[in-house]
């Protein structure tokens, strides 16, 4: 294809092979039932490759190609966001109580991340799309980090495969943030390298997902036996009160040490 160098073509071909393998494993092992949104995301990405292939036949730098690429990227960003939501659900949703709290926190932090990423930089029309993309990437990366922080805080250990899926998404999002930021500062010298590195980061993420899906057996429907809600409502306020008193007591120790020193 005119305008695409060999390295990009090679990474692109490798990505398509990896995506096909990923979809095959998802289909054969019926894991698309466990990760339907993730499967749709991979399908859409593969379809995007096909659409772009046709568009690039008319020329890599043409306006039509650019518009097609922007549109498909938008669709893929939304699909990726939904796939991340699915991963979050797999990690924590069976713990209904904490999930009800956590998804709200994640949603709020994602909203803040998107807004700050779009509004913070100086407005230049040519960077509206990269800024919006970067905003979503910041939101996705932040959401995944917060998800794992919450899981750690509540001592929930995610399955290794689900963790790998999250790591793949996180890696790609982080790399896209870095890429879009550098693009704005080194625009004229960086465009070619930008597309190379972006595609390479996606290929690495694909390989991580491939490994996760390959090792993902048909996961049994996990059961979580929950306590009755009275237990929490009886214990939680009492514990908080005790902790509060304990802190007051520590303050007294603090004051005593201050007096003695």
């Amino acid at each position: 294809m005119a305008g695409l160098d060999k390295a990009v073509e090679f990474i692109w071909a490798m990505s398509i092979i990896a995506e096909l393998a990923l979809l095959t494993f998802l289909a054969i092992r019926k894991n698309f039932r466990i990760f339907p949104t993730f499967s749709v995301y991979v399908c859409l990405d593969l379809s995007e490759s096909l659409v772009l292939f046709i568009a690039y036949l008319k020329g890599y730098s043409s306006l039509a190609s650019w518009r097609t690429a922007s549109l498909t990227q938008g669709v893929l960003l939304i699909a990726r966001s939904l796939a991340i939501v699915e991963v979050c659900k797999h990690v924590l949703s069976r713990f209904r109580g904490i999930w009800a709290l956590i998804w709200r926190v994640l949603l709020a932090s994602a909203g803040v991340a998107i807004l700050s990423s779009i509004l913070a930089p100086k407005h230049r029309w040519q960077f509206v799309l990269p800024n919006a993309e970067r905003g979503l990437d910041v939101a996705m990366a932040t959401t995944i980090v917060l998800l794992f922080l919450f899981a750690k805080y509540y001592q929930v250990v995610p399955d290794a495969q689900v963790r790998s899926l999250a790591v793949g998404f996180w890696l790609y999002s982080c790399f896209s943030i870095l890429d879009n930021t550098l693009l704005q500062h080194l625009m004229y010298h960086y465009v070619a390298l930008w597309s190379h590195l972006n595609m390479l980061a996606f290929l690495v993420s694909l390989l991580i997902w491939l490994d996760a899906v390959y090792n993902l057996q048909t996961v049994p429907n996990k059961t979580t036996v929950l306590l009755s809600s009275e237990v929490y409502s009886a214990i939680s306020p009492a514990v908080n009160l005790d902790l509060h008193l304990l802190n007051q007591n520590l303050t007294q120790v603090w004051n005593a040490t201050a007096d003695k020193t």
Partner: peptide
């Protein structure tokens, strides 16, 4: 935390308070 994790309903205020404490 275990009790909170295994509870079907939790109070956000209690959780944030415990975290702060």
């Amino acid at each position: 935390r275990v009790i909170a994790t295994l509870s079907p309903e939790i109070a956000a205020a209690h959780e944030f308070e415990r975290f702060r404490l």
